[in-house]
Structures are given as structure tokens and as C-alpha cells.
Design a protein around this nucleic acid. Sequence first.
DNA 1: AGCTTGACGAGAATCGGTATCGTCAGCCGC
DNA 2: GCGGCTGACGATACCGATTCTCGTCAAGCT
Lengths: 140, 140
Amino acid sequence: MPKTWAEDAQHRLREAGYRNGPVRIAVIELLDAENCCVSAADVHASLNERVGLASVYRVLESLHAAGLVRRVDVGDGIARYEPLRESGEHHHHLVCTECGKVEAFDDPALERAIRRVEAKSGYAVEQHDVVLQGACDTCR
Amino acid sequence: MPKTWAEDAQHRLREAGYRNGPVRIAVIELLDAENCCVSAADVHASLNERVGLASVYRVLESLHAAGLVRRVDVGDGIARYEPLRESGEHHHHLVCTECGKVEAFDDPALERAIRRVEAKSGYAVEQHDVVLQGACDTCR
DNA sequence: AGCTTGACGAGAATCGGTATCGTCAGCCGC
DNA sequence: GCGGCTGACGATACCGATTCTCGTCAAGCT
């Protein structure tokens, strides 16, 4: 791949009329380095809290509006974001009910089953999420 | 079935050391009459706001702790609850991104696929949720 | 009847997230 | 290069959902 997701994201946001300020670039780099979901608070902490929390939310919101990130909610009331890469592959999440850890998994058969449900639903489905909750192997 | 879910819930909560006060009974009856998910605010409104909102949350929390209800979060920041009936059947949710409507669906093939993923996960999975988001047929 | 303990309601507190506002800097045309 | 427009930024106020605290009350054991 010629371009990283970070470069692509900066480019597409610029085309959408946004300017790339230091906070935006930093957030994008951070997301690109992460493979699974991160919360706004995570980003804020990773940036050493030297940036305004509102700016972090703004950047994540603009990325979401541009379709560059996926918003994931695993049920704990905290929104998390993860980059939507060109490849189109995506994953779902296992949440430990004991320690709160979030892990990723993917499964082609599950995707096919969901695809079929989507087709039958009558909805123009844009996104689907599967969340499994339970005790992880270290917690039980 | 000899017992309704409401009777069973009251019985099991009593066994768990809770007492059945008027609010608890009212909330349980309300949930039993509902087939899909309701939020704490819905319950509060349905009870004519004559009860404390905190009491509604307390009852829902105790029902959840006893494994009598399922907590559903479709990503809008509002927790919803629905009764977990003996039969074991359950459904998942379609959320309209335009009007916020929540519908239920179920699909045996999807359940089987999830069951397989759970078995492979290494987690003691207690609950799984599938949420599809998109525009419903009336909104597009 | 007395005591313990949970249930209840009211309101304060918390927490994630959003909106507002004043300021600053990049980039445009001149 | 100089305004001026516009978006970026940080601080802070705000909002809505949920949880906590506390005083009071009543159920049910003894």
C-alpha cells in the first residue's frame, strides 16, 4: 500500500475543507498506531493532557463524519473509535465483565450470517456490531 | 407455563435477600408486559413519575444482578432492559440512524455462528449482542 | 413490641460527552 | 506584506444519564 491510513485520513479531511492542525495530526497518528478501539479519554491521556479534551472530541467527530473511523460502544457508556482501513476488513469485540478488557476477534462465518440478516432486514445497514461479554480466561 | 416471568422474578429476588416493595413489583409488572427493551426513563414515565428515579435504577440493577433481565445498549448512551425469560429465546436489535427507532429481530443461523465463536473465544461468554445500524425503510 | 435491615424519595454528585466563546494562526486576495 | 475570513484550539460551562448519600419508613424476624 502506497499510503498509510494516517496520510490518507489527513488528505481526505483536507479535501473535506478541514485544516490539519497539530492536534488533528497527533490524534490521527495515534489512531493509526492502534489496531483496536481507543476512547477519547485514552487519546487525551496519550497526548499527555497537553491538548484540550474538546479538541480530541472534535477531531474524532470529524473523522467519524468523514467515514474514516468506526465508533464502537461496548456497553460501558464510553465511546471508542478505531480506524476504518481501506482493506475493508473489520473485527468485533470480546469484553471481559470482570476486568473490563476489550479484545478483538473476527470470524468469516459470522460475517456471512450477518450479511444475510442485513439483506432481509429492510434497513440500509451501514454498520454492524457484535459484542460478546463474559469472563476472560485470566479472570475466571 | 405455570408461572409468569413477573412471579418468578419476585420469587427469585426474595430468595436473593431482597424485599418486594411497591416500586419493585410495579417495575417487574411493567417489564413483563413489554416484549422489547425499555429504558429507565421509560419506566419512570410509565409509573407516572410518582416514584423516585433512583428507585427505578435500583430495581433494574437488582434484576440485572439476579440475571433476570438483559441490559442492552444500542449506542445512544441510554441503557435499556428487557426480561430474560425461561424459554431462553432472545433477539437482537436494528437501530435506525435517522429516527432512533429500535426494532427486534432474530435469526437462528446467526445464533449458531455466534455460538461457534463463543466456543473458540476462551471466554466464559454470558451474553452477546448484535446491533445493526442503518436507515429504516420509512426513513430513506 | 422492639430491633434490624432493606426500600424508598429527594436531591446532590459524578461522569462522559457537547456547546460556547474568545483567541490564535493559516491562507486567500489584494 | 496586510487585512480579513475561517477553521483550530483550550478553557470552561453545560447537559443528560446514571449513581450516591441520607433521612425516613415499614416489613418481618425475635
